[in-house]
Design a binder for these strands. Sequence first.
DNA 1: CGCAAAATTGAACCCAATCAATGTTCGTGG
DNA 2: CCACGAACATTGATTGGGTTCAATTTTGCG
Lengths: 229, 229
Amino acid sequence: MHSSERNLVHALPLFRGVKDVHFDQLISGAFLQRFPQHVVLINEGQQPDFLHIIIDGMVELFATAANRETTIEILRPVTTFILAAVIRDEVYLKSARTLTPTQILMIPTPTVREVFAKDAAFARAVVDELALRYRGLVRTVKELKLHSGAERLANWILDMDRQQGETGSIELPYGKRTLASFLGMTPENLSRNLTALTDYSVTCHGRRIVIADREKLQLLAQQKDLIYG
Amino acid sequence: MHSSERNLVHALPLFRGVKDVHFDQLISGAFLQRFPQHVVLINEGQQPDFLHIIIDGMVELFATAANRETTIEILRPVTTFILAAVIRDEVYLKSARTLTPTQILMIPTPTVREVFAKDAAFARAVVDELALRYRGLVRTVKELKLHSGAERLANWILDMDRQQGETGSIELPYGKRTLASFLGMTPENLSRNLTALTDYSVTCHGRRIVIADREKLQLLAQQKDLIYG
DNA sequence: CGCAAAATTGAACCCAATCAATGTTCGTGG
DNA sequence: CCACGAACATTGATTGGGTTCAATTTTGCG
């Protein structure tokens, strides 16, 4: 790893405050690696070898059963994944693949566990990340069990608009197939739900979605949990 | 708190290895309190005041939206809840109510955060708990998105059988209404799914469920993720 | 430019929710 | 201890959201 990259990595929230000695230990055995698009990085059921940290690009966590497949989370920089598996030293519950060309920092599991045990700042950062992700999943479960497909889509659009600067015009960060899988519906249904949102001031052309009247859309989205979140 | 209770609490996984000074600090401001059945302990949207630890009894975490309600998790001793909210110092995403008379240890949020910052053993225990719960939620999401109602029920029955000693005869730990809400279906549908499981060697009388042929049931349950879990 | 994957649209089907009615369980007070 | 009422549980009939299957159009990429 070059020293410029080293500084970049040390500045990440996960490593900020970590003692230099410990940080050196963390990255001494680490790899900073580039992967092309659509590459499977890990498979569910495997034992964790490395903690993965997304430096650049986009990663999809998904799971399969029988002949089905679903997207659990979609991650962007700077985020770890399979942190829980590394901490507990248990098999992955999800698989991961790149959605774009992606740069990933891989730290061997034993190193992570060692430094975690002796560096308080790192431990706190790990907990913070875990707690954040836990809350994200709680929101997902609430969304799935309490809202219809159209409502989930509406919520996602409002969320994405917020992330992209609340301009009322958003760009899909990934394909509609992936979005459908993430929202828990078929691609066909996502299509239908999108046209149904016309009644709520939403229009979609290609990868661009425009919200004409945000309040109208919020009416549908039943924003209760997002207000609190 | 009596000294016998104190010792009991100190022996909990969450506090094992915590320095005596720090443990004293944790419980000095804590309450050990008994609640009757069906009492709401916390409401989603509130700011966390205490970390809750279930010493005895059973607690349901649930969430509401519009006029709907759903069960997210059902917890038994010895488990914490709203740990993520306490760690991040953000509002609760779920509400909690007792399902049975319950004894709960309540530690003020600031104390938890202080001790967490200076006691490595406690920090590790917190992370362990968080990671465990995170993985539980991942399983929930997979279950919801990949399996039908009948399959989820089958999985739940097999899971419960395992927890109760794999005797092939299990006792419902809570009402069918609650179970239905937890599994993400209506009480009517749970009833129908239970009768449908007759074809898979499952019979139900009152609160008792008997599995005649476990392998037959596993066929339906599509156990993939549980084998790995 | 041309092909393959993705996206859309329509039609039929199915799982699950809702509405409605009856039977059962259980806690409570007489 | 029994009787009663209210909540819970079951069963049937109907409705609806969502999936599946199938065909067509569009997009994106080599």
